[in-house]
Amino acid sequence: MVKLQTRAWIELAVAVWLTVISAGCFVLLVKLNSRGMDTLLIGGITGLIGGLIIAVHQTRVERQFDEREKQIRHKAFTWSAMGFVVLFGVISFAAFFTVGGKGTIPVYFLPALFFGCLLFAQFVQSAVILIQCAQESNDG
């Protein structure tokens, strides 16, 4: 298995793991009915620190790849961004047409939708990389 494939599997596993942890935290927050500025601040700081750690790590990881691998990863990222937007749009409009314009949905639906779309985007990104690698190995 080439480095690119290994990385794709690792990133998918990490995304699943982070989604499970995030989902657990949100379930807890929903049960506690947490709200207010302090909850927003704790959530925001945690998200910011987590995002920064991931960004720094990804910059280091990116240096390990050569130009063709970077191109494949860039293509995969483009597909995953498209996947995120499409799924976000589909679910948003599906909810709108299902519940109706004047209907209501539980507010925990919003972060759940966001994390669900993020997980889907990572799935698309890893799938594109793995498919590309499989095609190349089939071609010899």
Binding site: D66, E67, R68, E136, D139, G140
Partner: peptide, 22 residues
């Protein structure tokens, strides 16, 4: 040249056009 073997294979087969520095 500082790339992976897969990149050399892709270039040889004409499936990937290398950058000018490469």
């Amino acid at each position: 040249v500082g790339v992976t073997r897969q990149t050399i294979i892709a270039i040889e087969q004409g499936k990937y056009s290398p950058s000018l520095p490469l």
